[in-house]
Design a protein around this nucleic acid. Structure first.
Length: 442
RNA sequence: GGAGGGAUGACAGAGCGGCCGAAUGUACCGGUCUUGAAAACCGGCGUGGGCUUGCCCACCGUGGGUUCAAAUCCCACUCCCUCCGCCA
């Protein structure tokens, strides 16, 4: 039964306070009728379960008597009981099958239900209803106004990158098709530098992990990426594997099925991995340059924690993501995602968007999410409380950051009048002391 | 890829058709003893689920099968270990 029933929202809570759950889920578009159907299915499943278990208990009881009769050499009684038990066994098989049929259907329905949104999540239908929390730009604290960008900064990165010989989109497309960028020379090193820079900032407090980039179907189920978002995932059918869309996938399952020590919480992890996204349905929209790509590198921060620690874990990851952007001197804003834009598994998400002057728009470079126990329930990650009971952990994660778009923002923001790019000083140690990327002079 | 061995509770490790949800040891938690600790002794100690809260059901890698009855027998798969081959 473990891992089959109740792998989503809390089924116990749904039974106890159906109206509250229904109202909360209705905010994100789950029809109350859908939940009513699930509740009815749950009731039916339990009725069938009781009947099946009653028969099962009877068979077990009779079987024990058969054993005793045999031991007493009472073959006649044994034969009678065997016959009776056999007949009951047939009934039991039928009852169990009926129970499992409803159970499977219930399970499938439950897997499609998204997380219950936090009260702090604003109502809305799509990304246009997200609420801006605040913005930050270099010098803001000294009273400097929102930056004005010079004409030479308003060159999109695909032009600037081509000119500098650090981005070769044609080569990438030749190899893997469109939306697979190829960085070269200083551009390639910049990706590596950004990952190393971010990992070094955080690896002291967040244990550095280098996980697999492919995951089993069950693993993808745990985070909620499957079955709902199957069209956005790259799958390798022959091997039953999926390319991870984020390190959140392997990190969430790192402790799957375990009961953790409360004293060990929060467990904080960080990982840099390639991330793969099919971006189905996104063809042609905002896809120029590296605005939207199928593969990019990302540093992820992650925490398993108690429900009480959730809020501070969330704040810490958000602060660290902001810290990286501030250290890079990039302008960004925070968005509180509305119910319509919230990811399936998330109870609350803050997006970080960097401003990129060359394309004149805000680019999402991080998503900091609190999943409460939604993913932990699917992955069965629990902890032993001080009272000795078990409880599901909460999971929190956020990117710090996704590099392809940060790369673009850096190239555009720091582009100089002569076309060169002067990198933030903090990256110098990671760039082999290269501070300025200049056009190739032949 | 080929050959062999293995998978049981936090760990070690028995059980190999029926009073086995599972011996025993260690660890852990309570208690007795002690000035205190250790030792010794006594007791407790897996996870889910259902309901009439006292009982019932499930789980001995996973999924099937045989049987009145499966940790135990059969089949398939997965993972781990050893050896051979191949290989960054």
């Amino acid at each position: 039964m473990l891992g089959r029933i109740g792998v989503m929202i809390d089924l116990v809570q749904l039974r106890r306070e159906p109206d509250i759950v229904k109202a909360a889920l209705a905010r994100r578009g789950v029809a109350p009728a859908t939940m009513d159907a699930i509740i009815a299915m749950d009731v039916e499943h339990r009725e069938l379960l009781q009947e099946a278990e009653r028969l099962r208990a009877e068979v077990k009881f009779l079987s024990r008597l058969v054993g005793e009769a045999r031991r007493d050499k009472d073959t006649e009684t044994a034969a009678t009981l065997t016959e009776k038990s056999r007949a009951l066994g047939d009934d039991e098989r039928v009852a169990t099958e009926a129970m499992e049929q409803v159970g499977t259907k219930l399970h499938e329905e439950l897997l499609m239900i998204p997380n219950v949104p936090d009260p702090a999540v604003p109502d809305g239908v799509d990304e246009s209803d997200n609420v801006e929390v605040r913005r930050w730009w270099p010098g803001m604290d000294e009273g400097r106004p929102f930056p004005e960008y010079a004409e030479y900064q308003k060159v999109p990165h695909w032009e600037a990158g081509l000119e500098l010989g650090i981005l070769d989109l044609e080569a990438g497309a030749r190899i893997a098709g469109s939306m697979f960028p190829l960085f070269r020379g200083a551009g390639s090193r910049l990706i590596r530098a950004l990952s190393a820079f971010s990992l070094d900032r955080n690896a002291g407090d967040y244990e550095e992990i280098h996980p697999p980039t492919f995951a089993l179907t069950a693993t993808m189920m745990s985070t909620g990426h499957l079955p709902k978002s199957v069209d956005d995932m790259y799958g390798m059918e022959r091997d039953g594997l999926w390319a991870i869309p984020t390190a959140e996938v392997p990190l969430t399952s790192m402790h799957a099925g375990e009961i953790l020590d409360e004293a060990s919480l929060p467990i904080r992890l960080c990982a840099e991995t390639a991330c793969f996204r099919r971006e189905a349905g996104a063809a042609g929209r905002d896809t120029r340059g590296v605005l939207r790509v199928h593969e990019f590198d990302k540093v992820e921060l992650f925490a398993y924690c108690t429900p009480e620690q959730g809020s501070s874990a969330f704040d810490d990851i958000l602060a660290r993501a902001e810290g990286v952007l501030q250290a890079l001197g990039l302008t960004y804003r925070l968005l509180n995602l509305c119910t319509g834009d919230l990811g399936t598994s998330s109870a609350r998400t803050i997006d970080l968007e960097v401003f990129s002057p060359g394309v004149d728009r805000w680019l999402e470079v991080s998503s900091v999410s609190w999943f409460r126990d939604y993913q932990a329930r699917r992955a069965q990650v629990r902890y032993r409380t001080s009272e000795g009971t078990t409880a599901l952990v909460h999971t929190v994660n956020g990117s710090a950051l996704g590099w392809a778009r940060v790369w673009a923002a850096l190239i555009e923001t720091y582009r100089q009048e002569d076309g060169s790019v002067v990198l933030p000083e903090v990256l110098a140690p990671y760039m082999g002391e290269l501070r300025t990327i200049r056009p190739k002079t032949s």
